[in-house]
Structures are given as C-alpha cells and as structure tokens.
Amino acid sequence: MNPILLTPLDLLIAASLVLIDALVSIWLGLRLHKQLVVAAIRCTVQLLLVGYLLRFVFRVDTPLLTLGLILIMILIAGREVAARPEKKLARYGNQIAGLSAVALATFVTATFALATALRPHPWFSARYAIPLAGIMLGNALNAASLSLDALLSGVLRERAAIEAQLALGVRFRDATKPLIRTAVRRGILPVINVMSAAGIVTLPGIMTGQILAGLSPIEAVKYQILLMFLLAGANGIAAVSAAYFAMARLTDQRERLRVDFLS
C-alpha cells in the first residue's frame, strides 16, 4: 500500500480548522487569535524547513554532517534542560548537567538501537540515525529537566536533613541518596505512564503516523514497542545522570553541601 501523498491544498483545507479556533477567540474575546495564527505559521515554517533540511542531509548522507546535526540538536536540548529549573547552579552547572544527561542518554540508546534492532546499512545512515536521535532527545530532555528540577528545588528543602547527616560523619553521597532517588523517580514516572497508557488511552503519534503512511498496523506496532523500550532506557539514563551530575556540583572536596553554589 502506497502512502496517500498530501498536496498543499489538503493542508490549506486543514488550516481552516485553525481559523475556526481564531474565530472562537474573537467571538469569546480570548485575545488568543493573534498568538494562534502566529503559532500555526511558525509550526508550518519550522516543519517545512526541517523537512527540506532532512531531505538534504539524507541525500548527502555523510557521517560528519549527520553527527554535526545530532550534536546541534543535543546542544539545544541541553540548553532547554538547563533553563527549566527555577534554581541555577554556579559555573554553568545546569548547562553541564543538562547537556551531559541528554547527550549520554541519546548516544547510548540510539547507538544501541542502530547496532541491534535496526541495523541499517551503513549503521550511521542519516535516515535512521537522525529521527532516532531526535525522538530519544525529546524524551531525554523531558526526563532530565524533571529530574534536575526536582533535585535543585529539593536540595534547599532538604538542607537541614542532609547537613544533620553530614555533621554526624555520614558521607555526602549517602546523605544525598534520598534526594537523588526522589529526582530520578520524578524523571522516570512519565515514561511509565506513557507505556501503561499506550494503545488504550492513546495511540502513539509515531505509530499513527506510520499507519496513515501505509505501514501495516502490526509492523507499526512493533516499531512502537521498540521505541517505547528505547525511550524507557533514554529516560532512565537522562534522569539518573542529570541528578548525579547536578549533585556533584553541590559539593566540594570536604564533602560539604554547598548551597551557595545554587542561586
């Protein structure tokens, strides 16, 4: 079965639904119509640009360009993770923790998938590597930012508890373990929800897209299952590494809790 190709006219007709939203906004005085139209235009332009960019990268298909593009995506995701928490670590701690977490999660899971389940030829083929890295990144970003935020907001709240243990001679890594646990838990919970609800509450977007594009439901489902497991891995790695990297930035050689490194 061949995919049904969309024409610009098809998209224009679909855009009328956005216009309905805009009319509702005017009618109810929501003052959202301008933002709505701008967002719809941004969405269109950004996705088209990405489409052309990907077509170009897939055609060229050199490992260097593929890697470069993935690195840029990682940099942007890392910045997002760093910006999310209310609290900031000194000396670019948020950026370093966020970047390391998403980079590690993405590289480990994407390479793992390319080396085991997918095995495209060549294994670094841009058509597989880039979308895979992209979806891993999106999830790693989510998990890392939740974990980082939980850790940084928890550390001031738990300060007395942590320092009471330090004062008794407990090692920093043991005194902060409960907080690490809370942060990692926060980062991992969403993927558990997504996996539990998959197919019942929600039809995952990728699977829906593949079915619409003509793939058999069973094949689409198999891909979705593979992706879910990869995402679980990416979420775990991102949540754990964000928490540990950030916690390492909250202490010094004398195993103190340095809340002064947090602002």
């Binding site: 942590i162 009471a164 004062a167 005194a175």
Partner: peptide, 9 residues
C-alpha cells in the same frame, strides 16, 4: 556539630 534546629531524614 549539632545545629539549633537539627534536621531529620
């Protein structure tokens, strides 16, 4: 060292 308001974990 024992703080004036000791913490509990």
């Amino acid at each position: 060292y024992l703080a004036a308001e000791p913490g509990w974990w």
